[in-house]
């Protein structure tokens, strides 16, 4: 791995010097025909670091995540992921003809996949639902099963593609706690793609804003968790981030 290149942001350097990296992206571009979605993205994620990626819809957040997941090839630039990757998608994408436990154990290469799946289901509070069919689960349960399926692989990098956006507000709060809890226990590097500024501020070590095909803004959040959304530091950050996203600060400070 090459050391800091010219043009790397100061914060990225800081991530370099701390813990070893799990993700290193330099000058990543992605074009769909004439349209340039990613235009030279630089990104580092340290081992065990929780990074949130904000952006308006169509800003290329999901494109970047899909490139990291190995689902799409980039048009240009460098991308390396050092370790194993797991993904939880916006829709839980459970395989409907496999029971929840079999979904979690799917493709798992350990001596006893069933026991590993049961342990993961217990961690997300779904012990009782291991034998259920996915289509009988509530939205929150399905998303927890999807998290269990990702975590049971003990990934070095966990990619979360707006996994809470389809959930109701109360379920979302529970899921935030669960994700933090799981992250603190397993310490994967996390890239959380979201359009919810509060979600990013409550969860992440570092919040990035993707705009115009590149990382346009970066904020560190050095507060202890659990965080309260009314914390004065967060209020200021929220206003700054909303401004970056093109929302007037009236909403942010209100």
């Amino acid at each position: 791995m090459a050391q800091g290149l010219p043009g790397v942001t100061a914060e990225a350097e800081r991530a370099d010097t701390g813990r070893p990296r799990v993700v290193r992206v330099r000058g990543l571009t992605k074009r769909f025909g004439e349209r340039t979605v990613l235009d030279g993205v630089d990104l580092d994620i340290a081992r065990g670091e929780f990074v949130a990626l904000l952006g308006r819809s169509g800003s290329g957040k999901s494109t970047l995540l899909r490139a990291l997941a190995g689902l799409d090839d980039a048009t240009g630039g460098e991308l390396s992921v050092d370790g194993t990757v797991a993904v939880a998608f916006q829709e839980p994408r459970l395989v409907p003809w496999k029971r929840v436990r079999a979904n979690v154990a799917l493709g798992l290469r350990v001596p006893d996949p069933r026991a590993a799946a049961d342990k993961a289901l217990a961690e997300v509070g779904l012990t009782e639902r291991g034998g259920a069919w996915p289509l009988t689960l509530s939205g929150g349960e399905a998303q927890r099963a999807s998290l269990a399926r990702a975590l049971v692989r003990e990934p070095d990098l966990l990619l979360l593609d707006e996994p809470f956006s389809a959930l109701d507000a109360l379920t979302r709060i529970t899921m935030h706690r669960l994700v933090l809890d799981l992250w603190e226990r397993h310490r994967p590097g996390i890239l959380l793609v979201t359009h919810d500024v509060d979600e990013a501020l409550l969860l992440a070590d570092r919040v990035l804003v993707l705009d115009g095909g590149r990382i346009a803004h970066e904020s560190r959040v050095d507060l202890d968790r659990p965080r309260h959304r009314d914390h004065p530091d967060l209020t200021a950050l929220r206003a700054a981030l909303l401004a970056q996203l093109g929302v007037t600060t009236d909403e942010g400070t209100a």
Partner: peptide, 8 residues
């Protein structure tokens, strides 16, 4: 895509 991500 799930199958791809799970390396089936």
């Amino acid at each position: 895509e799930v199958a791809e991500v799970l390396r089936l």
